[in-house]
Simulated assay, not measured.
Amino acid sequence: MSVTSSAAVASPVDSSRVVRTRLRITRRGRAVVAALVAVPVVIVVGALVLNGGGAVASDTTGSADFQHVTVDGGETLWQVASEIAPSSDPRDVIADLVSLNNLPSAEVSAGQSLAVPTQYAR
């Protein structure tokens, strides 16, 4: 008969049983993770906004085609617009004339020369 000690008879450690701990993120931890994700996104969006609308240079020259009209005495810009573009709304023509000629208002004086876009040419 063989004698075994109680220490030798004890079962080996059960390796199939693994203790898992659950990861818990605190409110401060969630804020830190959100900041770490948000900072690169903000940097990329900021870079795109600052560099997004660049002008492209080309070798073609732009041409602004227009003719000149001289305002007669007592003539208003409404009358000029009605003469040069009878089928168009005078308000649109006046807005284009004021913009093209860089006028401070819609008032014109006799003898003033106005640039007229070719789309409205007589």
Rank of each mutant, 00 (worst) to 15 (best):
M1E: 15
S2D: 15
T4A: 15
S5P: 00
S5C: 08
S5A: 03
S5R: 08
S5L: 12
S5G: 04
S6H: 13
S6Q: 01
S6C: 05
S6L: 13
A7I: 09
A8G: 12
V9W: 15
V9A: 15
A10H: 05
A10S: 00
V13C: 03
S15N: 15
S15G: 12
V18T: 05
R20C: 14
T21C: 11
L23V: 09
L23T: 03
R24K: 15
I25Q: 09
R28H: 00
R28L: 08
G29L: 05
R30K: 15
A31K: 00
V32F: 09
V33S: 01
L36I: 14
V39Q: 12
V39E: 05
V39H: 12
V39S: 12
V39D: 10
P40K: 07
V41E: 00
V41Y: 05
V42S: 10
V42E: 12
V42D: 03
V42R: 10
V45I: 02
L50K: 03
G52V: 02
G52D: 11
G53K: 13
G53T: 11
G53I: 10
G53A: 14
G54F: 09
A55V: 10
V56R: 07
A57I: 15
A57M: 15
S58V: 14
T61M: 15
G62W: 12
S63C: 09
D65T: 14
Q67I: 13
Q67N: 04
T70M: 03
T70F: 04
T76N: 11
A81P: 12
S82Y: 13
I84M: 04
I84G: 08
A85E: 00
S87Y: 13
S88W: 10
D89W: 04
R91A: 11
D92T: 01
D92Y: 01
I94V: 10
A95P: 07
A95K: 02
L100P: 01
N101P: 07
N102H: 12
L103H: 00
P104R: 05
P104T: 09
S105K: 01
V108Y: 06
V108R: 12
S109E: 06
S109W: 01
G111H: 02
G111D: 07
Q112R: 05
S113P: 04
L114F: 00
A115C: 11
A115V: 02
A115Q: 00
P117E: 06
P117C: 01
Y120G: 00
